[in-house]
């Protein structure tokens, strides 16, 4: 073992630290992005033309905001967003500071995915609910979110996996984490085993997310 991954053996505590940082960034930015993404996704669906709360202005504004944010490359977003990060967190470097660009990098993507998942809910079912006198909020919670749940979970898995990818880039603003170890130690010092092990840990995280997600989908889907 020591012959295969000599540098990793001597860096065990750093690896544990980095893994925890990656989990921390992923978890908290996922929670915040989930709230924002669901909110935007739902609003996009209900305010769209022929939606249950049709509102052309709101739809058009949200649609453009999502498109705009999705167009900014993440590595540039990390830098561009620093004044907002400074305002919200009080610093622009470190693990917690990276949550701001991570959220802005991922929630528009998630919003679009949620929107597509909800658009797949049969319009006939929504119409049936309207014919039964359901209010817009009842339709959102009891029809859209419930009928769309398996798809929402599926897009959440995809999003979390993308998010894990983004956390590795946040090393550029000193966030720490597995990506940071892989590049600033493994790559920079030609310690290839460090890069390799960091990648393996990330793959394990990704597979775990996929497995847990698939298991939940199986539990909630009935067709």
């Amino acid at each position: 073992m020591a012959a295969l991954i000599p540098n990793v053996i001597s860096m065990q505590s750093e690896f544990i630290q980095a893994t925890l940082e990656t989990l921390y960034m992923t978890f908290f930015s996922a929670i915040i992005s989930a709230i924002l993404g669901l909110l935007f996704g739902i609003l996009l669906v209900v305010t769209q033309p022929k939606g249950i709360l049709e509102d052309a202005l709101t739809y058009s504004v949200l649609d453009k905001v999502v498109n705009l944010l999705r167009s900014i490359p993440f590595i540039i977003l990390l830098a561009v967003i620093s004044p907002l990060t400074q305002f919200l967190i009080g610093t622009t470097v470190g693990t917690t500071a990276s949550l701001v660009p991570l959220v802005f990098g991922i929630f528009p993507f998630y919003a679009r995915q949620v929107q597509n998942a909800l658009l797949d809910v049969d319009h006939g079912v929504v119409e049936a609910a309207q014919s039964m006198g359901s209010s817009p909020s009842e339709i959102i919670f009891r029809v859209y979110l419930r009928e769309g749940l398996p798809d929402i979970i599926r897009v959440s898995i995809v999003t979390v996996i993308s998010l894990i990818g983004l956390t590795t880039m946040a090393g550029a603003i000193g966030s720490g984490g597995l990506g940071d170890i892989a590049i600033s130690i493994g790559y920079a010092r030609f310690e290839n085993d460090v890069t390799f092990v960091a990648m393996i840990i990330i793959l394990i995280l990704v597979f775990a997310v996929q497995l847990i997600g698939d298991w939940i989908v199986k539990k909630v889907e009935h067709y």
């Binding site: 049969d122 006939g124 079912v125 119409e127 049936a128 309207q130 014919s131 039964m132 006198g133 359901s134 209010s135 029809v143 419930r146 009928e147 749940l149 398996p150 909630v220 009935h222 067709y223």
Partner: peptide, 20 residues
Amino acid sequence: RQARKKVGMIFQHFNLMKSR
């Protein structure tokens, strides 16, 4: 919405909720 409750409706494609 109250008035709609007094008018039931059925559809060609049933429009049942598959999650329930």
